[in-house]
Design a binder for these strands. Structure first.
Length: 337
DNA sequence: CGCATTTGACCACC
DNA sequence: GGTGGTCAAATGCG
């Protein structure tokens, strides 16, 4: 441990921080009697995974008894049995480690389209959204006129926050920025990015207690849901994730109270509009999505967007699998209720 | 000089 | 092999 390099310490810290945050989430779930067993079990798995990785980094082997079918990040445990060979470049060594791997993470993601004042002149500086981001890359995308910028939360290394976002100008309308958010902030920083302005005050000028942390977790969860629910986005038909299937828009009855009404939004009204859907049960922002395939992660949702009129909500959902795999019972759960 | 951004290279995934 | 996501050295900026 004493000869551990800085990046190793950072990665270890990441894992431990992640484990702590997940434990806090689990604590919240345990205090909510109606929360699903699956969600709790999923969190337990993730906590175990985080600590097993941390232990592995300390050179302590992980028991193989319990299989870990799908690692949350899709990464293998980042340790080679043999010392790195001399021929390998330092860069490659580092890229093999958890936290610095180039392997793509399977994080929940959702699209936000934002109108900016002009196509030119503004550069590609994304509008302020309440969080602090650091740009870590830019890429020309095939078939796109404009490059895609890659941003990570600035608290990634300090607090292990894995939130990312990608910003790109729309091909059709350069005054529209398409922002793909990936992952949920676990850093507790930032403001109510997804909340309508003025609807919620900014948090925490002071150190957080455990209960404040819980509130933050809860609030962040609600932000994601609210973003999904009230987003001023486009119908799903216009979303552009060609590699995945897209579920047609669904209409809901109007609702004024998110938490309460979401539980009632369930099957009936949805099935009326789209019969061949869908997963039996889904937590939009939590951790539970029971699917026939036994997959159970929010990351299965590629994007979610919504528009609203006086009498209805139109919600577009995109999943990385075919709609006809779904069974017809489809409900939204509000994890906090 | 320190920090943020840019940019070419690397690499996983399809 | 092509594409997109990430890394990290180089560069720019305050």
């Amino acid at each position: 441990m004493e000869n551990m390099r800085d990046w190793e310490k950072k990665t270890l810290l990441d894992e431990l921080t992640q484990g702590r945050e997940l434990a806090r989430q689990l604590e919240i779930y345990l205090n909510v009697p109606s929360s699903s067993v699956e969600a709790r079990e999923f969190l337990v798995q993730k906590i175990k995974s985080a600590f097993e990785k941390a232990l592995a980094m300390c050179g302590i082997s992980v028991p193989v008894g319990e299989p870990e079918p799908s690692h949350p990040t899709g990464h293998p445990i980042p340790f080679s049995e043999s010392p790195p060979s001399v021929s390998r470049s330092p860069r490659r060594e580092e890229s093999d480690r958890e936290g610095t791997s180039r392997k793509r993470e399977t994080l929940p993601r959702w699209l936000k389209r934002i109108q900016v004042s002009s196509a030119m002149g503004l550069g590609d500086i994304p509008p302020e959204d309440g969080y602090s981001w650091r740009k870590y890359g830019q890429k020309e995308i095939l078939g796109s006129k404009y490059p895609r910028g890659y941003y990570r939360c600035i608290h990634k290394y300090i607090q292990g926050c894995r939130a990312l976002k990608q910003v790109q100008r729309s091909n059709e309308d350069p005054t529209v920025l398409e922002i793909v958010y990936r992952g949920i902030h676990t850093c507790g920083h930032g403001s109510s990015v997804f909340l309508p302005s003025g609807s919620q005050e900014i948090q925490e000028p002071h150190r957080n207690t455990v209960s404040q942390q819980q509130q933050l977790q809860q609030q962040q969860s609600e932000e994601v849901l609210l973003n999904f629910w009230e987003g001023r986005g486009v119908p799903s038909e216009n979303l552009d994730f060609p590699q995945h299937s897209l579920v047609p828009s669904l209409q809901f009855p109007s609702t004024s109270n998110i938490g309460a009404d979401l539980n009632q939004v369930s099957s009936a009204s949805l099935i009326d509009n789209y019969c061949s859907m869908s997963p039996s049960r889904m937590n939009i922002f939590g951790v539970n999505q029971n699917l026939p395939s036994s997959e159970s992660q929010i990351s299965e949702i590629i994007s979610a967007d919504a528009t609203s009129t006086a009498n209805s909500r139109t919600v577009g959902l995109e999943f990385p699998f075919e709609p006809d795999e779904f069974d017809p019972n489809f409900t939204f759960d509000h994890p906090g209720s």
